[in-house]
Design a protein around this nucleic acid. Structure first.
Lengths: 220, 220
DNA sequence: TTTATTTTTTGACCTAGATCAATTGAAGAA
DNA sequence: TTCTTCAATTGATCTAGGTCAAAAAATAAA
């Protein structure tokens, strides 16, 4: 697909006038990444942000003893890595691809110039960051106020929404990564999948999960 | 202190030209709150954001069974409650005062008009939201990759930085609230204070805490 | 000061879930 | 197909920290 098409479809740039899209096209650079490749590292300075053109990217924190917490997984059309652009500080987390991916890179200065000239672009960016804040809010809520089964339940319900499905979702990450996203271990997650299956809440078949009882999932 | 002075000192509005400060003054409204009063509730629609003029405000989530997780505590000059302004969705969390407070309220439409006319204001707001994202990042990191003693240690180190002290900090919240901020219970927090004292890491005297061994605190 | 109310601390106990270790299963390479 | 390798499951055990209950401090009110 053409670059302009992708930008146009993204939540961030959707609705912008044609000439602004062209400007965005011309300042951004496409980069290709293999599966599992690092995009940037926690603590590195950043001089621009990225948008997923194809593939999937995880943003994560590593503890000193090597444990990983995934903060978010970004798919096509989603921008990431903006913090250094607007706040000037280094990347607060690391990013690497979960699949072979193409990313668009928007250099800081050029983008800020566009922003200055186009208030509506600034407002879109504010909207994107606000949505991000909201997500963090619910992530903290899930991590601290719910136990693991509840977190899994909300993730499955989130997927069903995101994938516009009625009762079946397809995991977008290997189960090990899902554990890291939910703040638990693969072992625990596996047990919980088993228990929820026994209880008739879900039916697991590889990466496909059928949600049998939305009602009870919701009250987790 | 005069309103304009407070706005001028805030990180968000600091550095703006005089006439913009005047405009901000004229669109914002001052509201007074008693200690413990609710400012807004999780899920409510919002038609503007706030800035602390005096006092202190906590942003928090409540679980269905009444447990509280504090997301952040805002002091003088800090804006909060912006998500609905830029993303249009309801407040993602609740806010109430931790002390008698005065808040400035900035109505959505008027503020957005100012933004549109002043790119630098938009950039400041982007910087503020980016900083907020960074904070959430470290909060998730602390909650999931560190255990409670480690979280307390980073909070104390954060305070010593914030308060520009060498070795003594003053807790800005009652201990019960601190527990909720660190994602634990008052009982556990109390035990950890005791243990860290025994170990010679800190010396607790009411709300004043002397950090005896920054080195070892850091490696928690 | 004395009393009442809230906050903090301490003790005893319990559970969610992490860790360690071993097995099974699945997916890609030869 | 058969190896090889990595991911997922299952079992057994351990522990951080939550819960419940009571005592002790600290604050506020009278």
């Amino acid at each position: 697909m053409k670059k302009k098409e992708i930008l146009k479809k993204s939540l961030l740039f959707n609705g912008l006038p044609d000439e602004q899209l062209d400007a965005l096209c011309s300042i951004s650079v496409s980069k290709k990444y293999q599966r599992g490749q690092a995009v940037f590292h926690d603590g590195e300075p950043g001089n621009g942000f990225y948008m997923v053109a194809s593939g999937k990217v995880k943003i994560f924190k590593l503890s000193t003893d090597g444990k990983e917490q995934i903060l978010h997984i970004f798919g096509v059309g989603e921008p990431f890595g903006e913090v250094p652009v607007f706040h000037g500080t280094p990347f607060p987390a690391s990013a690497s691809t979960l699949a072979a991916s193409e990313l668009f890179f928007f250099p800081r200065l050029e983008f800020i110039n566009l922003l200055k000239a186009n208030p509506s672009l600034a407002l879109s960016m504010l909207a994107v960051l606000s949505m991000r804040l909201r997500r963090f809010t619910t992530q903290v809520e899930n991590l601290t106020l719910k136990e693991v089964p509840g977190r899994l339940a909300s993730y499955l319900l989130y997927l069903i929404e995101e994938q516009n499905r009625e009762e079946e979702v397809v995991l977008d990450v290997p189960k090990g990564q899902l554990a890291s996203l939910l703040g638990t271990t693969p072992e625990t997650l596996s047990r919980i999948f088993a228990k929820m299956s026994e209880e008739g809440l879900i039916k697991v078949a590889g990466k496909t999960i059928r949600l049998l009882d939305l009602e009870r999932l919701r009250e987790r």
